[in-house]
């Protein structure tokens, strides 16, 4: 077990290095130009003259060739320095991430929880009532949730629950008038959380349903039935635990999609998290900030997979045995 963790964590720097290099190369090859983006964002209608561009690039340390920039960034990273965000006018990237991490983690964590519980309930219900109208409904909505663009769902959610019904606030993470900011209130969390969960639950639900149906054909399920074990017990105590083992791994592999989905959702709901910051950093072509966000994302993905993997080992007695 320790060896597994160790091996993964040893690989982490390599993964991060590769990811960072990729971001650098993409930014370098991208037609989006930081100076251009800066002038467009700051002063409407201004022209970027060659002199101005040269001055900006000098001030931002962009005049060096790409490899030099990458190495100097890397050198600072090794010393634990993520650099300064150009978009945030020179604020340390670490501070920007710190401010934004909490709301994002709350949103992602609670949405993941809702996704898992919801997908389990819906998946089990669909499998238990296979081919019934309920199954059809759950399957159709799961497919729909997977293929309908999430920003569209988000806009619809805002329209219905905030505009039409006026049940929930349309944006922000806490009351604008009475709270000083930096907090997350449940009433504000509900809509983005449910929207994110709704748009992400599709694969999970279908997966639970399909693995469950597969497991239900297994010999031990038939044996349990042969012994007269009740329908509900067969489903929950015999089939479900087996179906959940691969499901745990699925959670790990779906973390990137969850993070990706949160970028759109956070943007629509004006959520003060990393997803929203990602959009802003991308528009401003703020490479240090983008790099840091991507690295945080990569760490989350690696950790998520690691945890899923460990969990997988812990819950499957066959593998747990071989690790002792």
């Amino acid at each position: 077990m320790i060896a597994v963790v160790g091996r993964r964590l040893l690989a982490l720097p390599l993964i991060l290095f590769a990811v960072a290099l990729l971001v650098f190369l993409l930014a370098w090859a991208s037609p989006y130009d930081p100076a251009e983006a800066y002038v467009q964002g700051a002063a409407a209608g201004d022209a970027l003259t060659p002199e101005l561009r040269e001055q900006f690039e000098r001030a931002w340390g962009l005049e060096d060739p790409m490899p030099v920039q990458f190495l100097s960034w890397l050198g600072r990273l090794v010393q634990g320095d993520l650099g300064e965000s150009r978009y945030l006018s020179g604020a340390p990237v670490v501070d920007a991430l710190k401010d934004r991490a909490y709301p994002s983690l709350v949103l992602l964590g609670s949405a993941l929880g809702v996704v898992l519980v919801g997908a389990l309930l819906a998946g089990v219900a669909a499998a238990a009532f296979r081919d019934s109208p309920l199954d059809w409904l759950i399957r159709t909505s799961a497919y729909a949730a997977t293929f309908v663009p999430s920003f569209w769902v988000a806009l619809l959610a805002v329209f219905v629950f905030a505009v039409q019904l006026d049940w929930l606030p349309a944006a922000g993470a806490s009351n604008l008038r009475s709270v000083d900011g930096g907090r997350v209130e449940f009433r504000h969390l509900l809509l983005p959380m449910l929207t994110l969960a709704l748009t992400q639950h599709g694969w999970f639900t279908l997966y639970v349903r399909d693995t469950l149906l597969e497991v239900l054909r297994d010999d031990y399920v038939r044996f349990a039935e042969a012994q007269g074990v009740g329908r509900v017990a067969v489903l929950f105590r015999h089939a479900l635990p087996n179906a959940l083992i691969p499901f745990v791994t699925l959670i790990g592999t779906h973390i990137p999609e969850l993070i990706g989905g949160s970028i759109l959702i956070e943007s629509v709901f004006g959520w003060p998290g990393l997803g929203n910051l990602t959009r802003q950093a991308a528009i401003a072509v703020d490479i240090p900030l983008l790099l840091a966000i991507v690295l945080v994302g990569a760490v989350l993905v690696v950790l998520g997979n690691l945890i899923a993997d460990l969990l997988y080992r812990v819950i499957d007695p066959r593998i747990r045995e071989s690790m002792r």
């Binding site: 010999d219 031990y220 044996f223 349990a224 012994q227 635990p241 087996n242 499957d316 007695p317």
Partner: peptide, 16 residues
């Protein structure tokens, strides 16, 4: 009616 199924290995739930 009781059944002793074929293939005892796969008849026992692996996670129980």
């Amino acid at each position: 009616m009781a059944l002793i199924p074929q293939g005892a290995g796969s008849a026992l739930n692996p996670v129980r």
